Amino acid sequence: MDNDLDALRRQLQQLKDLHEAGTLGADAYDSARTALEQRIVALVMQAPAAAPASTPAAPKLPRALVLGVGAATLVLAIGGYLWTGSPQLALAPVPASVATAASGAQGIGQAEIEAMVGTLQQRLQEQPDDAEGWLMLGRSYAVLGRHAEAVPAYRRSLALRPNDAALLSDMADALAMVNGRSLAGEPTTLVEQALKLDPDNMKALSLAGSAAFDRSDYATAVKHWERVAALAAPDSPWLPRVRESIAEARSRGGMPPAAAVAAAPPAATAGPNASGAAGTPGATIRGTVTLAAALRAKAAPEDTVFVFARPAEGPRMPLAIVRKQVKDLPFEFVLDDTTAMSPASRLSTQTRVVVSARISKSGDAMPQPGDLSGQSAPLALDPKGNTGLRVEIGQVVTP
């Protein structure tokens, strides 16, 4: 589950990057972000999986950074493109079927993407001069792992739009995958062209660093990857891996360790919450959850108990969450930024929250009829921490 959750969080950061770069319109960003946040909620509320595999010795920047577009983002982008003719999704609502595919709790499958790819192929037969369409097709093939098919799609797009740094980087990545993950030759040439057009293109920088590392040019790898680290948002989930790669390149190249990188800024700098307030740095909520005596017969010992905080105003996306079982009741809980759902949605970004507790027989992320629930009154967060909160589960969820 951790790997899947990390991937979703990376996709959430990718959406933010695309939006801030002006590539993704505000409406499309809000729609796609909501879909991803719903999937994060669903995944976090599932039982934990086995520990992730160990990191390979030779550092490579995360594929999410290299690919640049995650599956959920891509499904929304393709769907919006087919619906509106614009990959930015900003001109019209995304069809319900597309939003459902992107937000389904079981994740996005290959079948959903392949169906959209088939429709996209048909459109390109009718509109062969559509550079955006060929780019979208290439990225679709890349997400599906069909890199040999991605290359000619990228070439068609590049012929129509030759001075596009992002497109050059995408094609370099696909060619490298076809060549056994080697960036030597044409991929490196494409990356160099991309950096001439856009010296701060993060994907091109990451690929250039990998190419330099592969040829044992560790100083150049460090230069490119340190630029990636400088450009990345402080809360980017893949930033620690970038720093690990920098440290490894410095070590292999006999260079001294880099000066300590400043830690991510405190949560209060993350920006205003939905009400316009600046947030509550250091926010912590400690309390106890109990089950009303009248409902004890309706709950089994193995039923799942979710305790979560959400904004008192604005989106209902949980900010922090813990998971227990009925047999643990009554139990004490702690909610803070270490139990956050995503780096972009943390308890410390708020000033007022509501704390809820819910017993789910199915373990489903979404409330179901027959679930048992309870919640606190709106709670003003105290920078010194809130303690002594009591939440009683005393209601039955109705249809």
Rank of each mutant, 00 (worst) to 15 (best):
A208K: 04
F331H: 04
T351Q: 15
Q110H: 14
E132N: 01
E226P: 07
Q127L: 04
A344P: 07
Q350V: 11
D17A: 11
A71W: 03
Q46I: 03
A263I: 10
D328E: 09
A35K: 00
S345T: 15
R286M: 06
R215F: 09
A184M: 02
L205G: 06
S251N: 00
R10H: 04
D364C: 05
L76Y: 00
R10S: 08
S54M: 12
G374T: 02
A90Q: 14
P59K: 14
L319T: 15
M45S: 06
M171H: 00
T398Q: 12
A365F: 05
S169C: 12
Q368M: 05
T290F: 11
D130N: 07
P266H: 07
K203W: 08
A101Y: 02
D214G: 04
A105K: 02
A357G: 12
E192H: 15
L190R: 11
G388N: 08
L195I: 04
T288D: 02
R323V: 09
K196T: 11
A148E: 12
A194F: 12
D371Y: 07
A172F: 06
A204C: 01
A212W: 05
A64M: 05
M45R: 11
A221P: 09
A96Y: 01
S275R: 10
G363A: 14
A131F: 05
V75K: 00
P234L: 12
A219R: 14
Y218L: 12
R9M: 14
A380M: 04
G25Q: 04
S345R: 15
T73V: 06
A49C: 13
T188W: 01
S356C: 08
S206T: 10
K384P: 02
G104D: 04
R310Y: 08
A96D: 10
T387I: 02
V326M: 05
T269P: 10
D173W: 07
P240R: 05
L190V: 13
R250S: 09
R243Q: 15
L137E: 02
A274W: 07
L124Y: 11
A233L: 11
V41C: 10
D30V: 07
P266T: 08
L135N: 00
D130S: 14
R286G: 11
R155N: 11
V222N: 14
H147C: 01
D27E: 13
A28Y: 00
V334A: 01
D198R: 07
L389I: 13
A299K: 04
Y154R: 03
T398E: 15
R241L: 10
S169N: 07
G394L: 06
K203N: 06
A90H: 00
V228F: 09
N273G: 14
D337V: 14
Q38L: 13
V326Y: 06
S182I: 04
A277M: 15
Q11W: 05
G374K: 06
S140P: 09
E313I: 10
A111I: 13
R181H: 06
P48D: 05
H147Y: 14
M1Y: 12
A102K: 07
L335C: 13
R146F: 03
A365W: 02
L379S: 12
S245A: 15
